[in-house]
Structures are given as C-alpha cells and as structure tokens.
Simulated assay, not measured.
Amino acid sequence: MIKIITAIPLFAQLPPDKFKPLISDNQLYLKSYSKGTTLYNQKDCCNTFDIVISGSLVVYSLLENGSAMTMFEFSKGHMLGANLLFGDTHTYPFTIYCLSDAQILHITKKAVSNFLHDYNFTMQFIGMLSLNAQKLNQKITMATQKTLRENILEYLKQQSILQHSNSIVLPISKKQLADYLGVQRPSLFRELKNLKDEGMIDVSNRTICLNNV
C-alpha cells in the first residue's frame, strides 16, 4: 500500500515512514468499488479526502427539469473532497458514482492535517484546490450564462482542437452529452438538427463535421 501512496505525486516527497502509523490507525485506507456504485449521494457528509487509484467516476447534479448535469469526471490520479473537508459545509452538493470498477484511497482530515505541515505537500494541495475551483467556475458559466447552442458549439470546437480535425467523433454518447450540458435529450437533438439545417454542422451518428464554425 505504501508503494501505491508514494507513487502519487502529492505524496512523492514525503518519507515512507510517515504513512505507516496513519495506515495502522486507519487514517489512510484503500477501498474498492464496483461499477455503478454510488460513492457519495448529494448531501452526504464528507469525512475524507479521496484520490482515484484506478477506474473512473462521474459527478452529477439533478436539475429542476429532471435532467442530470454532469459536473466533472474523475479518473486515475484525480482528487475529490478536499474543498469540503475543511469548509464550513461538509456535505456533498453533488452525487458521485462509479463509471467502472474503481479503487479509491481515502485520507481522513486528521491525516491531511498531519501532511499539511510539509511545505511541498501544502503547495501542491493548494494548487489542486485552485484547479478544482477554476473547473467549477467554468461549469457554472456554462450553466448560467450561455445558450444551449453556444455550449454545443464550444464543446464541438474543443473536440475539434483535441482531435485535430473539423470532422470529430463524439467521445461520449448523445445521452451523456445532454447530461454534460444539463439538458434533456430532445432539447439537444433539436438544437443539433437546427445547426445541421443551417449548414453549420453535418451529423452522422457520433460523427459530426463542423462547417465554417
């Protein structure tokens, strides 16, 4: 278990002996979860800072219109719960479940407080909190300030850059894309049809070609 922990960049500069008493005291522990398992429900209390060792997780929020808005996806090396562990509010605002079998390293508040005495750990920890806050701000902007059309086109442009082509293959299903954008599937399909009718895109299953976008 110590080999797994020291392979994580956040802990790389801490001496291995620092982990042994925390493991013995169950302040650091590994736990496996099956695909489809809900790791945390909305309003569950956050008691640990978690790091994904393997597998993938999705964070979503249920909207008033009944759709589920995907906020984040976590995979190996990603961290969650740190912003809640030391905050005034210790409950999860979203639901988190496993997209695949996953292994999670759970770290208690007591253990994190111990690690924060190390300067390198503290600086990396702060950097991670800052990055998570930036991602959340981007998601809030998407949900509140832009139209569905603008969000669709922004997503398609991002994929075009990542795939180095104006003809892209959606890496997720249209159902997952609707969840990511926080809308019902009919709304997504209707706007995609409008964009196609206006000649801005061509659609063939999960392949979308951007025309002068």
Rank of each mutant, 00 (worst) to 15 (best):
C46V: 11
S67W: 14
L22T: 02
K31M: 10
S32N: 15
A68C: 08
I51K: 01
V59L: 09
K31I: 12
S34T: 06
Y29C: 10
L63V: 05
K43E: 00
G66R: 01
Y60T: 13
L28P: 10
C46M: 13
S24E: 07
F49C: 14
Y29D: 00
S61I: 08
L28V: 13
D44C: 13
I51N: 00
Y33C: 09
L28R: 05
F72H: 08
D25L: 02
P21I: 03
I51E: 01
S54N: 07
Y60H: 15
M69E: 07
S24F: 05
Y40H: 15
G36I: 00
G36W: 00
A68W: 08
L39K: 03
L22C: 01
L28G: 13
N65D: 09
Y40G: 10
L39M: 11
N26W: 10
S24R: 11
K35F: 04
S34R: 15
S32L: 08
L30F: 12
G66S: 00
L28C: 09
V52T: 05
M71H: 09
Y40I: 02
S24V: 07
M71T: 07
A68N: 12
T38G: 11
M69D: 07
L62G: 08
E64N: 08
S32R: 14
Y29I: 07
T48R: 10
L28D: 05
I53L: 05
S54Y: 02
N65L: 04
C46Y: 13
S24C: 01
V58D: 02
N26M: 10
N65C: 03
G66K: 02
L22W: 00
L63H: 03
N47Q: 14
S56K: 15
F49I: 02
F72A: 06
Y33S: 14
L62N: 08
T48Q: 05
F49E: 01
S61T: 14
N47T: 11
V59I: 14
K31T: 10
Y29E: 08
S54D: 12
T38N: 12
S32I: 04
L63D: 08
D44F: 13
L63F: 03
L62M: 13
V58A: 11
S67F: 12
V52E: 01
C46A: 12
S54K: 06
Y29N: 07
A68S: 12
G36V: 00
I51W: 05
N47K: 12
G36C: 03
S32G: 06
Q42W: 08
K20V: 10
D44N: 06
E64S: 13
M71E: 09
N41D: 13
P21L: 07
Q42C: 09
